[in-house]
């Protein structure tokens, strides 16, 4: 026979153990919930890469629009697209690099600001081959690209003159296409010398 005081002690010990077990489970669940919410709010590298490809796609569409209004000539610089209100300056930044736009108020004019963004701040390189009169550009040449450092040498997003965006994971192939684009410049300048 157990005495009432002994029985009371066992009961309170059981309650304490139950409290600890239930508490730890609830604590873990709460922590997982907090972590999941935090993860949902911060974009991952893959999302950034897709965002970057979407930027290039937007630039490609803007170039098509620009050409339709400018005798089929592509813009001389990407700043021309911003001036024409076809893209915003934010589209010239790759989300993976974490580059920030400067404050527009620190520039004397909006034109100077856009030129600075295109020449200094932007993460993309524009090959303005299509902006030259009487020059036909093969569609498989590169129009806009980024350096592989933007995505830690895993891949590069490239916009071609046929307005398709490709994520190149084979950087050897990317180098080959890029050299072909440079060679085309050499060929045009060389033959017309």
């Amino acid at each position: 026979m157990t005495r009432p005081s002994e029985w009371q002690g066992r009961k309170s010990r059981r309650r304490r153990i139950l409290g600890w077990i239930l508490g730890i489970i609830v604590g873990i669940l709460l922590a997982l919930l907090v972590w999941k919410i935090h993860e949902m709010l911060t974009p991952k590298e893959l999302a950034r890469r897709v965002f970057c490809a979407a930027n290039l796609s937007g630039i490609g569409k803007a170039i098509i629009l620009y050409r339709s209004e400018n005798y089929d000539l592509a813009p001389p610089t990407l700043a021309s697209l911003i001036h024409a209100n076809l893209i915003g300056p934010q589209m010239l930044l790759c989300p993976s690099t974490g580059t920030q736009l400067p404050v527009p108020e620190s520039f004397p004019s909006s034109s100077a600001y856009y030129d600075y963004v295109c020449d200094v701040v932007s993460d993309y390189i524009y090959v303005p081959l299509g902006s030259v009169k009487h020059v036909s550009v093969p569609e498989d040449l590169i129009c806009v690209y980024e350096l592989p450092a933007n995505h830690w040498y895993y891949s590069v997003n490239v916009l071609y003159w046929n307005h398709r965006v490709r994520t190149e994971k084979n950087l050897d192939l990317f180098m080959k296409n890029l050299q072909r684009t440079n060679d085309y410049y050499g060929k045009l300048i060389g033959t017309k010398r």
């Binding site: 409290g19 239930l22 508490g23 730890i24 489970i25 609830v26 873990i28 709460l30 922590a31």
Partner: peptide, 12 residues
């Protein structure tokens, strides 16, 4: 004990 366990589980 429940409150202490929730805190401990959460932190760990």
């Amino acid at each position: 004990s429940f409150i202490w366990a929730v805190l401990l589980g959460f932190v760990i």
